[in-house]
Design a binder for these strands. Sequence first.
DNA 1: TTTATATATCGAAATGTTTCGATATAACGA
DNA 2: TCGTTATATCGAAACATTTCGATATATAAA
Lengths: 102, 102
Amino acid sequence: MELDLDEIIKAIANPCRRQMLAWLKDPANNFDLSHPAHPECEGVCVGKIVQKTGLSQSTVSAYMDVLQRAGLVKSERRGQWTFYKRNEETIAAFLETIGAKL
Amino acid sequence: MELDLDEIIKAIANPCRRQMLAWLKDPANNFDLSHPAHPECEGVCVGKIVQKTGLSQSTVSAYMDVLQRAGLVKSERRGQWTFYKRNEETIAAFLETIGAKL
DNA sequence: TTTATATATCGAAATGTTTCGATATAACGA
DNA sequence: TCGTTATATCGAAACATTTCGATATATAAA
């Protein structure tokens, strides 16, 4: 588990990205997941996040990439969709580390 | 206790400011505190932080102001010196909040 | 009161972040 | 294969952060 503390803090320094991460805690209640293209996937696809945030598609795509590079989310491609879900291991490790180092 | 999460995260998003905050956990071991001007003060004055960090005086002054506005440190003026120390209450509250919201 | 010291503020250059629209790529369906 | 849909990448404008040196202010010392 390689934690880049600086990268993580910068990722969550943006309120929109923080909000996205929080919404992903409870996809069923935070996104419109009727008619899922891939019901076997637990994650949320980019388009749903675009709908929810109101940000442009390109911005959401880039933001999810920032979160993923920081290790805060994992992605899974299924056909034309990319599904994102939280990476609880990294998030927990980050909270421990920041608690110790701050 | 008014916690501005966004302000706090932005304050600690800078590695120098994070380092300063960490050094203030143990002033005796992290700063040269021989010949203290005000031994009754527990904090560390700006000049000592300048020495330790190698950053310019103006930068350190501004950075400490950012940390203080975020509530992460408290200051006390004594003569021509300003002594800074950690605000453990805010720091603890922040860690709780971020743990719950992230 | 003049001078020295500590800190704060100002102005600016370089760099980074935010966010978009346009376009490219990838995968599906007819 | 061709058009459609989902996502990724590019280029750019606006804004924010980083960091400095110069200068202002506040306090103490001579």
